[in-house]
Design a protein around this nucleic acid. Structure first.
Lengths: 184, 184
DNA sequence: CAAAATAGTTAGACTATCTAACTATGACTA
DNA sequence: TAGTCATAGTTAGATAGTCTAACTATTTTG
C-alpha cells in the first residue's frame, strides 16, 4: 500500500513560535512582588525577542547553505587575514567554544573548500587555519544579506527612539558582559 | 601509562563568548552605505545580546536539571490545567515545533514523572497530556529563578530608560512578529 | 464502504555543542 | 639529557533540540 505523501505540511516550512501572552498570563498568576512585574514582563519580551532574532538570522542565511556559527568562523578568519596566523585553539578562545567543536566546524568548512589547514613549521603541534578564495567569495556573497538582516532587526523605530535605544543597548551589552564574565 | 587528567580545563566551565568588536570592525570594512552603519551596528549588538540572553537563562536553569524548551512545555501544560484538554498536536502548534519534536520532549518529561499521557476516550487517536503533581512542584521550585533571571535581563537601566525601553520592546516585538508571520 | 484526513509515533538525519581521553610535540627541570 | 609536564589538535561518544518522511491507528467524509 503506497503512502507517498507525508501528512506533514511541507508547504509552510516555518512554523510560528509561541507568543508571549501565555507567559505574561502565567507571570501574573505566579510572580511574587508587584514591584517587579514590569521588569519581568520586559524580560520575558526580551527572551522572546532573543529566540526570534536568532531565528530570523538563521532563516535569512539558510539560502546560502550556511549557519550563523559557521559564518562567524569565516568572518573571524577573514578578519585575521594579513595579521597574525590563527590556530584552532585561538579560534576556540575567540568564539568561546571548545577545541573539539572547532575541529568539527573546520572539518565541515574544509570539506567544502572554504577554509584550509596548514601545519606550522615552527611548532609542529600547531595548525594555521585560513579562509580560501572560495570561502572569501562566499562571505562576500552573504554579507549584504547579513548586514541588511542586522539592520532590519531595528524594525521601524523612529530617529529619536533609535538614539535612545542605542544608549540602552550599550548598557545592556555591558551588563550582560559583566554577568557572563566579560569575553576577552 | 595512565592519563587520568583530561587536559581540558574543567574548573571554569563557562567560556566567554566572542565580543562584538571584531564584527564591528568587519562591518566598517565591508558594509556599503554609511547611512546604514549605525543600524547595522545596533543590529549586531542585538544579535550578540540575543545569543547571550539565552545563554544566561540556560545557565540559570541548569541547576534545576531543566532547559528552557522543557520548562516552556511544562508552563504551557500548567496554563492549561482546569481549562481545555491539550494534545501533543495542540502543544506542537502552540510551541511552534513539529509533532515529532513534541513526542521527544514528552518522552523525556514523562520518564521523569513530570507529565502524563492519557488516551482520549472520545477520539482514540488523541492523547491528553497533563502535568503531574511532581511536575508542578518542579515548576514552582524553578519559577522564582526564572522570573528573577527575566527581571535581571534589564540590568541597571534607570526608571526613565526603562519606560522608553518598554515602548521600544513593544515595537520590536510587533515588528518581528510580523516578520515571522505572527504566531497563531 | 472506500478514500482521505488526522493523531501520534518511529526512524533517521542534522547542527552545535560538550567531556574525556588520546597522539604528537615541545618545554622545563632536576 | 631524561623524565615529567604542558600544549595542540583530534577522536569518540554523548546530549539537546530540532527536522522530514513514513508508518499505524483511528475517524471523517463523499
Amino acid at each position: 500500500m503506497e503512502r507517498k505523501t507525508g501528512n506533514e505540511c511541507t508547504a509552510d516550512q516555518q512554523l510560528p513560535a509561541l507568543g508571549i501572552d501565555p507567559y505574561l498570563e502565567l507571570m501574573d498568576k505566579t510572580a511574587a512582588q508587584d514591584a517587579d512585574r514590569k521588569s519581568i514582563r520586559m524580560g520575558l519580551v526580551m527572551l522572546w525577542l532573543s529566540d526570534n532574532i536568532l531565528d530570523v538570522m538563521d532563516v535569512d542565511l539558510a539560502p546560502f547553505g550556511i549557519t550563523e556559527s559557521k559564518l562567524d568562523m569565516l568572518l573571524l578568519l577573514m578578519l585575521h587575514e594579513g595579521r597574525e596566523l590563527i590556530t584552532p585553539s585561538g579560534i576556540a578562545d575567540r568564539l568561546g567554544i571548545r577545541r573539539a567543536s572547532v575541529t568539527a566546524l573546520l572539518d565541515w568548512l574544509e570539506k567544502r573548500g572554504w577554509v584550509s589547514r596548514e601545519q606550522s613549521a615552527k611548532d609542529r603541534r600547531m595548525i594555521h587555519v585560513s579562509i580560501t578564495p572560495e570561502g572569501r567569495a562566499l562571505v562576500n556573497q552573504v554579507l549584504p544579506t547579513f548586514w541588511s538582516t542586522c539592520a532590519s532587526l531595528l524594525g521601524d523605530l523612529d530617529a529619536e527612539e533609535r538614539s535612545v535605544f542605542e544608549k540602552i543597548l550599550g548598557k545592556l551589552h555591558r551588563s550582560i558582559e559583566t554577568k557572563i564574565g566579560v569575553g576577552r
